[in-house]
Structures are given as structure tokens and as C-alpha cells.
Amino acid sequence: MIDRTEVEFWREKMQNFVEKEMWPYEPLLPRFENTLPVKVTNNIIGKMKEQGLWSLTVPKKLGGQGLSTPLYCAVREALGRTVLWGITGLHLGGSGDPLMILYHCNDEQKERYLFPLMRGDLLVSFAQTEPGAGADQAGMKTRAVRKGSGWVLNGHKTLITQGTVSDFVIVFASTDPEKGRKGVTCFLVDKGTPGFIIGDTIETMGGDRLGDLHFKDCYVPDSQLLGMPGDGFRMAQNWFIGNRITLQPPICLGIVDRTIEELLRVFPNEVDDRWLGQIQAEYQRARLLMYDAAYKFDQLEDPQYEASLSKVATVGLAMKVLRRALEISGSHGYAVDSMFQRYYRDVRRLPITEGSMETQKMVTSRALIRGFSPVDSLSPNYLGEVGEYV
């Protein structure tokens, strides 16, 4: 059951924080980076903790607030209303909410990785993509070979978000190539581990700086194994599905919200009523899709179809609105200090990451071809509970 009052409470709570504590720092964000001065970032994080906006999704038994997925989406909607949404320190595992895959940590690993991430003491990277294999884990070339009481890693990961600045990396390697995806295993590799070589920083058109990572006879003990051998693909897929609901869709909705607000403030006579009406219809549809996927995720149903639809709808809408905003604002929007161009450059990577838009379209189309009915995807009481307010 999704409670309307709670959704509005958390969205407004984060929106007030964003406008008061983050908007003033937006002019300090370097034009082509997503990193603020350390003191500024720490100040923002400190105030988030003080105001109860930290470790929101972490289960209460681990010291977090245990927010439901719909409530976390509401919080991140509000976070999308600032161009600081992607700053280092609030990105992967941001706001004290570790990557979901790290809940597979054993007790010792929780002390070394999970709890420090919750405190904001560590940065982490997710290293799966390779030069010849992006989303295709079956085609993974990185290998981990058993040696004594550990494993030897050899391979090359590229285009890794926060890869050059993270304290440790979640690395996927094939431990049994003949099994394909079922032979992929996950490891936790600390920065500074012999054989773990941080290569070049890859510049992007947005604010992200990606890393090129190499593993050359990199030995990791069994204590660095996350889950069991061969569990890597299953754990990664579950994490990706959750991400497609909580990371990109709510941020995109927040971006659309602020972009429309700014257009109406600065260029009220340039915004066509019919275009705005169409955008509002698409906006409400995208929110319905996101909250339905979030609801299903918490009910332990399979939300893969809804998660894919949510990504396609929200990311596509954000790109559409930002393109139009650049057209309406003309040279003002094209200027390097414009909010519109900043949002556009950072959002442009979202159709690629967390499973490309084309892949998500393929997921949904194949479901329909197999005989899946979109009507069957609606959660119980979906129209009565979610549709009333989202």
C-alpha cells in the first residue's frame, strides 16, 4: 500500500533541502565536471544527515530508515531539481544508500565496505563494461582463475563511473567461461591491490569522468568474493532492475519539472500551450509507470517489464523537454553556464547506462511477442492507489 501523505512528505522534504542547501552551490560546479570542493560536498552531506535525508533505503536493522522504493523515488524526484544531482559523493551509493548488490556482503565485508559506504566514508565503482562487451556478460573477457585460497584476475574494464577515484571496485569476471553468464563471479577489489592498475581518465561531454581499469595477475583472496562463484550475473541483474526504477526515472522527472518551471519563469511567452499540455500528459504517464514499477519491486514481484518501460518513458521525456528548452531559450540556453545545456549534457548519457534504451525496448517488445498483456502488468489497486496522486 502506497501512502499519498508519505510520498508528498518525503518529496517536499527533499525539495526544500535542494532549494535551500544545494541551489546556492550550483554556480560553483565546474563547467565540465561533477565535483565540488570537498568542503562544500561535506557540508551538503553533513546537512543531509542532520535533516534525516541519509541512508534512506537501508533496512532499519542495519541502521537506516528503511524507506520503501516508492518513497525513495519521491526523494530522488526532488533531487533531480538540481544540477548537483550527480556530484561525486552523492552518485553511486549516494545519500548513504549503498549499491543494492552490496547487501550480499558477509558480516566481515559489511564492516569493511557496507557500513563505511553508509557513513559516506568510501566511494565505490561498478566495473562490468569491457572494450568488447558492454551489457553482454556472456561475452566477458576478464578472467578469474583459482589459485590457492584466492583468485587471480586478468582483464580490462572501461568507461567505469568514478573508476579513477573510488576506494574499491565491484568487479565481474568469468570463473567458468563454458557456463557463459552462469560462470560470472563478483569480487570486491580495493584500490592499491597489487595488479589493479588505474588507467586513463576518460573525458565525456557531460560532467562524468570515467575510468579505464586493468587487472594484471591481480590476486584477491576468497574473503573478497561477493556471493558465491557463478552468482555474479544473477546479482547484477537484480541490481540493474532496481536501478532502472530508483536511479534514472525519478531524477529525469525532477529535471523535467525544474526545466518546465524555468522555461515558464524566463520565457513564458515562448512556451506553446499545446506543447506544454502534451508534455504534462507524458509526464504524468511516466510517473505512473515509475511508481507502479516501484510498488511491484517492493511486493517482490518481477518488475522487469515495468522497469524497462519506466526508463524508456522518463529518460526519453527528459531528453525531449531539454531539446525543446534549448530551442526556446536560443543563445541563452546554448551558453555554457546555462542550466539547460548542463542538464542536457549530463542526461545524454542516461539512454546508454544502466541498460541502453534500445535494450529496454527489446525487453518490452519480446514480452509482448511472448503473449504478455500490458493490462496484466498493473499492480493490484494500481489505478485506485497510485493513479490518484502520482
Rank of each mutant, 00 (worst) to 15 (best):
E8I: 13
M205N: 14
Y72L: 10
T35D: 15
K39E: 15
T259N: 09
E108V: 02
S95T: 15
W151M: 04
V347F: 02
D302M: 10
K320L: 06
P194W: 01
D3M: 05
G333H: 04
L226C: 04
A138H: 09
P229T: 04
S223K: 06
S55Y: 01
I160P: 05
P30K: 07
E354H: 13
A367P: 05
L288R: 09
G232T: 02
K311G: 13
F172E: 13
D3I: 08
L225I: 05
T359F: 14
L350R: 11
P70F: 01
G211F: 02
H214Q: 14
R285E: 12
G387R: 08
Q128S: 13
A173Q: 06
G242L: 05
A173W: 02
Y219D: 13
E8A: 12
W10V: 08
L84I: 01
K296Q: 15
R76A: 08
N381T: 13
P268F: 02
V363I: 11
G155N: 05
H104T: 13
G89F: 00
H156Q: 09
S125E: 05
K311V: 11
V386E: 10
S329M: 00
K157S: 11
Y113K: 05
Q128H: 11
A294P: 01
V390H: 03
A78E: 04
M140V: 06
R274K: 12
V58L: 02
G192W: 00
D346W: 00
L213M: 03
V169C: 08
V18I: 04
L309C: 15
L92H: 11
K13Y: 03
L62I: 00
P229F: 00
E50W: 00
V184R: 02
L67R: 10
K47G: 10
G254I: 01
G355T: 03
L210S: 10
Q299K: 10
Y113G: 15
P303L: 02
Y382V: 06
E6A: 14
Y295Q: 12
A293G: 09
P24G: 06
L71I: 04
E77G: 09
M205E: 14
L264E: 14
D107F: 02
W54M: 05
L309W: 04
L159K: 12
P229V: 02
H214V: 08
P98A: 11
S331E: 15
